[in-house]
Amino acid sequence: MTDEIGAFVPGPRVHIEGRAGGPLSGLTFAAKDLFAVAGVPTGGGNHDWPTGRPIPDKHSWAVQTLLDAGATLIGKTITDEVSLGILGENAFDGTPKNVAAPGRVPGGSSSGSAAAVAAGICDTALGTDTGGSVRVPSSFCGLHGIRPTHGRVDVTGMLPQAPTSDTTGWFARDAETFARVSAVMLGEEIPSKLPSKLIVAVDAFGFADADTAEALQPMVRKLAALIGSSGEEIMAPQGLSVWARAQRSLQPAEAYATFRSWLDERNPRFAFSVAKALVTGSMIPESDKVWANLMRQEVRGRMKYLLPEGTILCLPTTPFPAPKVGLPLSVLDPLRDRITCLCAQGGLAGFPQVNLPGATTVDGLPVGLSIIGPRGSDATLVAVARAMEKAAG
């Protein structure tokens, strides 16, 4: 199978048949190059990462679970270097093409996985989400994507970045495939019962670009009609930027701790933006980390208050559609900061979040609407995604 969009890691393509007769038989999937596949080096998006490391002798939990369910693995996909990126541009392996928004980034760090699904090369794909790496490419590529409840899905065999925020996630083009894969990964049937209340995060909509917020309004109205009861709330009373600052204090510090010994021993090559993130992580004062951990507790308390059982919250997944490929760092850095303002609650609170596709800006660029539910309500969010697609006809 050809890779005309540059979604897969260079070299021979991995192909492993799924178990015959499983619930996902007939489906194909790809795995972000952070997931162990037996007999294949884990590249991590950085050509120095595999050096001196043993080749995995067994599959990661996520890969094995999909294979056991009958899905066939067709390759490993490009990721931002050691998952330290949100836009999907990789200095070593290139930028996968976003067929949903030509000339635009696919979003990262699960860039190849999202791009491959969007292009129809595979039915579903594994990604990871620490600061938004499934949610953002889902929005930019017009896909269903999930960041599960933190700790819900086994991450054995997945290359870590910041463990208190890391999760495994997955993508699909249509809600029915998304539900089939989610049932397997979550280990439970997708219910028919929907939540009874919707909250619209007005501060998040106010923070998004005007054309993005406007493009999402028909989906918000459809969601409200589906749920039957809706209201408005401020999600982050301290400020979305304050939540983002807490995530930017905790995540880089953890990432530096994760990779510190490798940096010391190997002095690996990085793109400047990735090196900058690690250097920043190494310099975060203990006082900032103490403050950020306290803010994490506040965020968790706020989300628990907003989301009792039977309630979901919606917000723009990203504040704008996919930026153009190849923008200068001086332009990209503020964009990354704005994305974090709408994604920080994922890593801080660990509540499940699903991106719903279906909206485009006046320029025809995809933007996603996110729904967040209480911890453990992952399958219910998937049920909402399925109901939304059926309502659309």
Rank of each mutant, 00 (worst) to 15 (best):
F205M: 12
F205G: 08
F205H: 08
F205W: 08
G206T: 14
F207E: 13
F207H: 15
F207G: 07
A208E: 10
A208N: 06
A208V: 11
A208I: 11
A208L: 11
D209F: 11
D209W: 14
A210T: 15
A210I: 14
D211F: 11
T212H: 06
A213E: 07
A213V: 07
E214D: 12
A215H: 12
A215E: 04
A215V: 04
Q217T: 04
Q217R: 11
P218T: 03
P218Y: 04
P218H: 03
M219K: 00
V220I: 06
V220K: 00
V220R: 00
V220W: 00
R221G: 07
R221V: 05
R221I: 03
L223F: 02
L223G: 00
L223T: 01
A224G: 08
A224E: 05
A225C: 02
A225I: 00
A225R: 09
A225F: 01
L226C: 03
L226R: 03
I227A: 03
G228Q: 02
S229D: 15
S230Y: 10
S230V: 12
G231V: 07
E232Y: 03
E232V: 01
E232A: 02
E232I: 00
E232T: 05
E233M: 06
E233V: 11
E233W: 03
E233I: 05
I234S: 06
I234Q: 09
I234D: 07
I234C: 08
M235N: 02
A236E: 03
A236T: 00
P237G: 05
Q238S: 13
Q238R: 14
G239S: 11
G239C: 12
G239D: 10
L240Q: 02
L240V: 05
L240I: 08
S241D: 10
S241Q: 14
V242T: 15
W243S: 05
A244V: 13
A244E: 07
A244Y: 07
R245C: 05
R245E: 14
A246K: 03
Q247Y: 13
Q247M: 15
Q247L: 15
Q247I: 09
R248E: 14
S249E: 12
L250V: 12
L250W: 09
Q251W: 07
Q251R: 10
P252E: 04
A253D: 07
E254K: 02
E254I: 04
E254T: 06
A255K: 09
A255L: 10
Y256A: 13
Y256V: 12
Y256F: 15
A257P: 05
A257E: 13
A257H: 09
T258E: 11
T258H: 08
T258G: 06
T258A: 10
F259I: 04
F259M: 13
R260N: 15
R260S: 15
S261P: 05
S261C: 09
S261Q: 15
W262P: 10
W262T: 13
L263G: 04
L263Q: 06
D264I: 13
D264V: 14
E265Q: 14
E265Y: 00
R266T: 12
P268E: 01
R269W: 09
R269K: 05
R269L: 04
F270M: 02
A271V: 10
A271I: 09
F272S: 05
S273A: 10
S273P: 08
S273T: 11
A275M: 02
A275L: 04
A275F: 08
K276P: 00
K276N: 09
K276D: 08
A277F: 06
A277V: 00
L278H: 03
L278C: 04
L278N: 02
G281V: 02
G281L: 01
G281S: 03
S282L: 00
